[in-house]
């Protein structure tokens, strides 16, 4: 199966691992990630104001490109996913916004046809759950992570706003725990798994970010986690910067390890 792929700016720089493992594992699982040509940075944060149009156009362009390719759009980074999915929702449900965005887009060189939210947006984890299937992943596992206690850290962006993200139950998600089980490891359930690490305010109020991220890492540590797994480069950075006693790894790295392609990918 072919899907359009939006890696985003951070995966191209500080989070290359997240990207490389995602590509390698997709290959093994029979999914071809076709990187969108000339994609532009999503901006890192969705601005909820309805009159903010220009900053959302990079997402609309990526969505329209996927539509034109007849493919769903897949993201890996939690922030890109949140921004693109919320933009898609606005294109579907906010006519005034969609009209303005399409007017801007019509000025592009080689404009696409007007876009109205036709593209299906998947986070890579949803691709694993809904398209590949966790059963198939279980079969493909070569090095099961038996006995490892792993804490899924959802944070805020994958889950909320729940009615737009439609990713999982925002108060009681199970997708990453199911993923962890498919790799043969043992998920650790802890209270802060769907609370925010405060990453956005690091530059403005480092103390506040430290407080929130410590709450998350301590909650995971107190429940016996040996590893915290995340999809978000900002969460990883924030937890590590503030001295998480539990190592934080990307979910794609765990997947690559379990599928037995981690070393190959690192060597490439």
């Amino acid at each position: 199966m072919k899907v359009s792929y939006f890696p985003g700016c951070t995966l191209r720089t500080k989070a290359k691992d997240l990207d490389n493992y995602a590509r390698k594992c997709a290959e093994i699982l029979g999914v071809e990630l076709c990187e969108i040509k000339d994609w532009q940075c999503c901006g890192g944060a969705f601005v909820s104001a309805k009159d903010e149009v220009a900053s959302k156009l990079s997402s609309v362009r990526a969505l329209a490109a996927a539509r034109d390719a007849g493919q769903p759009l897949v993201t890996v980074c939690s922030a890109c996913h949140n921004v693109i999915k919320q933009t898609n929702d606005a294109m579907q449900n906010d006519e005034e916004f969609a009209a303005k965005a399409n007017l801007y887009m019509s000025q592009d060189k080689d404009p696409s046809e007007a876009y109205n939210g036709e593209t299906e947006v998947y986070h890579y984890l949803e691709l694993l759950r809904d398209v590949v299937g966790f059963d198939k992943i279980k079969e493909a596992v070569k090095n099961p992570l038996t006995g490892k206690k792993i804490a899924a850290y959802y944070g805020c962006m994958l889950l909320r706003p729940g009615k737009v993200m439609n990713f999982d139950d925002p108060e009681n998600p199970t997708i990453i725990e199911d993923f962890i089980r498919a790799l043969g490891a043992e998920p650790v359930i802890y209270p802060a798994r769907n609370e925010c690490c405060g990453g956005y305010v690091i530059l403005e109020d480092a103390k506040s970010a430290e407080k929130k991220s410590n709450k998350v890492s301590e909650s995971a540590a107190n429940h016996g986690a040996e590893i915290i797994v995340t999809a978000c480069p900002l969460c990883k950075y924030n937890l590590e910067k503030n001295g998480s006693s539990v190592p934080v790894v990307y979910f794609t790295e765990l997947l690559a390890e379990a599928l037995g392609v981690k070393e190959d990918t690192d060597a490439e």
Binding site: T10, T13, K14, G44, A45, C77, Y200, P233, Y237, K241
Partner: peptide, 28 residues
Amino acid sequence: SRITPNEIPALLDDETPQQLLMSAMRKY
């Protein structure tokens, strides 16, 4: 602006993800 572009370099380290800079530009 709450944080201006010339204040930013002093706030960064080697690991700061781009995502943080982009969202700071949106937020401040």
